[in-house]
Design a protein around this nucleic acid. Sequence first.
DNA 1: AAGTCTATACGAAAGGTTTCGTATGTCAAT
DNA 2: ATTGACATACGAAACCTTTCGTATAGACTT
Lengths: 130, 130
Amino acid sequence: MPRPPAIPQPTNAELAILRVLWNEGECTVREVHERLPEREVGYTTVLKLMQIMVEKGLVRRNESSRSHVYRAALPEREAQRQLVTDLVDRAFEGSAASLVMHALENNLATAADLAEIRKLLDERSPRSAP
Amino acid sequence: MPRPPAIPQPTNAELAILRVLWNEGECTVREVHERLPEREVGYTTVLKLMQIMVEKGLVRRNESSRSHVYRAALPEREAQRQLVTDLVDRAFEGSAASLVMHALENNLATAADLAEIRKLLDERSPRSAP
DNA sequence: AAGTCTATACGAAAGGTTTCGTATGTCAAT
DNA sequence: ATTGACATACGAAACCTTTCGTATAGACTT
C-alpha cells in the first residue's frame, strides 16, 4: 500500500517547531517564537526555519493575512509514526518489539500507561489466541 | 541516581558503524568497512569517522597492534536506551507510553513479539495488582 | 635495498543545519 | 507625510557531518 508522499525527517530545531504547531494548531511565526520553550533563539531564526520548512513540505502556510499562518503538514501521529519507524530501522534492526521493551524497561511508563498498553495488546492479540 | 557519563548522540553514519561493532564485537577499521552493508563508502571515510568517534567517546580503541582494534564504548542496550529516551523527549513530550503505542500500532511487532512484550508487562505490573 | 601492501593521520571540500543581521514592505497613528 | 511597530525575505556566517585525497610510515617480499 503506497504511503503518503513521505516527507523528509524533521531536524531537531524543526521538530521543536512542529511540536508547538501540533499543540497550538495554527500559528504565526510570532506565536511559535513565544511558545518555544528551549533556549533563547531569535525571532528571525524561527522565521527562517519555518520558511525552510515550507520549502521542505513540513508545514503549510496561509499568506492571506499580513502575518502568515502556519500549520503542520502532517498530523502529529503520522509524524511520530515515521520517527519511530526510522529509529527502529536505524538502531533496532527493524525490531519494533525490541524498541518497545526498551521503552518499558526504562521506568518512564506509569502504571496507567502500562494498563493502557496492556489494553492495546489485548485488542491486537487476545490472550486466548494460540 | 546519577547516570553514566552520557555520551553524545551518534549520528547516522556513526550508528551504522556502532551496529557493526555491537554485532561483531571488536573490529579493525577494515573489518567494519567490509561489513558495512549500506552504500559504497571509501575505506578512509570509515577510518576518519571512527577516529572522530574515538574523540567523542563513542568508541574505544586498542592501539597495541598495527591495526588498531575498536570496540563500542557503550553496550548496545544502553545506547538504545539513550536513543529511545531522546526520541521520547524530542517527539513524544516525555510519554514513553505514547511511543510504545505507536510502535505497537504499526504492525512491525510479530505475534511472538507481542507475547514477549506481554510477558514483560506482567513482570512489571502483575495483572492482579491494584 | 627497493618495491609493494596496508595502516594511520590529516587537511579540506561539499553539503546540511542553525543562527542572525540587514533590507524592505505594510499598516496605523500621529 | 513621517514615524514607529512589526512583518517577510534574503544573504551569509558558524558549525557539524560526511566524504575522500594525499602524505607518511611500518612490515614483508623479492
